[in-house]
């Protein structure tokens, strides 16, 4: 392997030792309005390394917030910071950013490889590294065979992959993925989900926007939920779920001695209700899921309660989403 090719290896999964701990992206009381329509209303949030899902219904302001964070639009009020600096003022920061837009529009008359090469060139990648880097990322996304075909002839899934490729080719520290799984077949979806998770584990800051909740759930448990232009919730799904006090978390236990288990749970302060369902499971409700889960192992061991399976029925992303958005 030549020196250039070695240098050009796309270091997906490489953590940046210089990356500041904590907030990488930060929005401070950001608002954006178009005429009389407020798309984002005084929202604040911080995004750190790892994968974060940006969720919201259509028209919730998700795309606007996404573009504000990526520096593509200027907030009407408030500020957006990347590594503590304003992206719109320091375009050089884009070298550390990869952006995969939702829009399907692409320069159809260029080949996939030419497009990636152009994007790398504009990133300031040294000339000898451009070809090898473009080839590596196209191969990684299983597009090597189509690299020399025009993008106009690509399928929807292939176009999506080229968009991903241009966002990742220069090994960015922050990656914005707007609906990255649109139009992909199940195998490709699986590959992209694995890739995103891998990038997140490697310490990259990945912000993924999607309206398909199970997809986000497979990538991360860390979410930002936006509704009517406001950030409703931010953080781990379970922790967010725990904060929704008016809807107790429901936990189902499969046990060989359900009556004893039910009687024990009914006496605990953290449990607000216990019942047996038609499958013979003990269904407990708690207002403090985090405390409940923390205490549970000790209870079971101390009392010698037999439990074969524990299932949380409504701390799924869908349940949290429905509770918060009020569907």
């Amino acid at each position: 392997m030549t020196e250039d090719a070695r240098a050009a290896e796309v270091s997906i999964g490489a953590a940046d030792p210089d990356a500041a701990p904590g907030a990488v992206l930060e929005a401070r009381r950001v608002s954006k309005w178009f005429g009389e329509v407020i798309a984002v209303n005084g929202s604040s949030l911080t995004v750190g390394p790892g994968v974060t899902g940006l969720l919201g219904l259509n028209g919730a302001g998700k795309t606007t917030l996404f573009k504000l964070l990526a520096g593509l639009i200027e907030p009407s009020q408030g500020e957006v910071l990347v590594y503590g600096r304003r992206l719109r003022r320091e375009v050089g920061l884009f070298r550390r950013i990869g952006f995969c837009p939702e829009s399907e529009a692409m320069p159809d008359w260029l080949t996939g490889r030419e497009f990636i090469a152009l994007m790398l060139r504009l990133m300031g990648t040294p000339a000898p590294q451009i070809g090898p880097r473009a080839d590596a990322i196209l191969a990684r996304l299983h597009l090597a065979d189509a690299a020399h075909r025009r993008i106009g002839g690509y399928s929807k899934g292939m176009r999506q992959k080229v968009k991903m490729a241009q966002a990742l080719a220069h090994d960015p520290d922050i990656v914005f993925l707007d609906e990255p799984l649109n139009g992909m077949d199940p195998v490709s979806r699986h590959e992209i989900i694995a890739l995103v998770s891998e990038l997140g584990r490697a310490g990259k800051t990945i912000l993924v926007s999607s309206h398909i909740l199970p997809e986000i759930e497979t990538m991360t448990r860390n979410i930002v939920l936006i509704h009517h232009g406001k950030v409703l919730a931010e953080g781990d799904i379970t922790e967010i779920r725990d904060l929704i006090r008016d809807r107790p978390t429901i936990v189902a236990f499969t046990s060989s001695d359900p009556r004893r288990l039910a009687a024990f749970l009914a006496g605990q302060e953290l449990v607000v209700g216990v019942e047996l369902d038609d499958r013979g499971r003990v269904v407990a409700r708690t207002d403090h899921a985090v405390g409940f889960y923390r205490a549970l192992p000790a209870w079971l061991l101390a009392e010698g309660l037999p439990v074969e399976e524990i299932e949380t029925l409504d701390d799924s992303l869908q349940a949290v989403f429905d509770y918060l958005v009020g569907d």
Partner: peptide, 30 residues
């Protein structure tokens, strides 16, 4: 994994160098 997943070479540029803006003439030319 097609050679991916490696850490950057030890001589990698520091953050300020990474954030250099491409000169106008070069960017316009490309």
């Amino acid at each position: 994994m097609n050679g991916l997943g490696r850490l950057r070479a030890s001589g990698q540029p520091s953050a300020p160098a990474l954030e250099r803006t491409l000169p106008l003439a070069a960017a316009a030319f490309w």
